[in-house]
Amino acid sequence: MSKSQTVNITCTINEAQYSFELPPLTRLIDVLREDLQLTGTKEGCSEGECGACTVLINGELTNSCLVPIVQMDGASITTIEGLSQKGILNKIQQSFWERGGAQCGFCTPGMLMSTTSLINNLSTDEIPSEEYIREWLSGNLCRCTGYSKIIESVSLACEVNNG
């Protein structure tokens, strides 16, 4: 019987380089949480519906539960652990803190990654409408907040970003 296939993958995660030898369809979320103990990225639905596992891949918002490691060779990945610098909250995290955008916190890493990507995609001085924010976060489910505090947090983050 043939041995099962593994692939050699080298990628950058939160600015550090890693190499893995893993079965090709190993999900990125499992590599993050299990191999690297980066457990800030959460697993909710495992099927792209809840957004708890959201990360940035080459700057693009992505559900890490749907990404096979075989496609990550050469990629640059940012997880929630890559947002704060030396334990200091960045402006987006600070905005969620100030506006009560997190309750139980399970959805929060994904919300913060989506907000990061929302802000990265704005043109200079653009203030996103509530509708725009809601659409950008529509892949992130929250069972606690009823969303309005999250929207307020994102709005604040956008203002701070502009100011």
Partner: peptide, 9 residues
């Protein structure tokens, strides 16, 4: 189609 993260892939 889905949400932003799905549309990216």
């Amino acid at each position: 189609v889905g949400a932003i993260a799905i549309q990216n892939r």
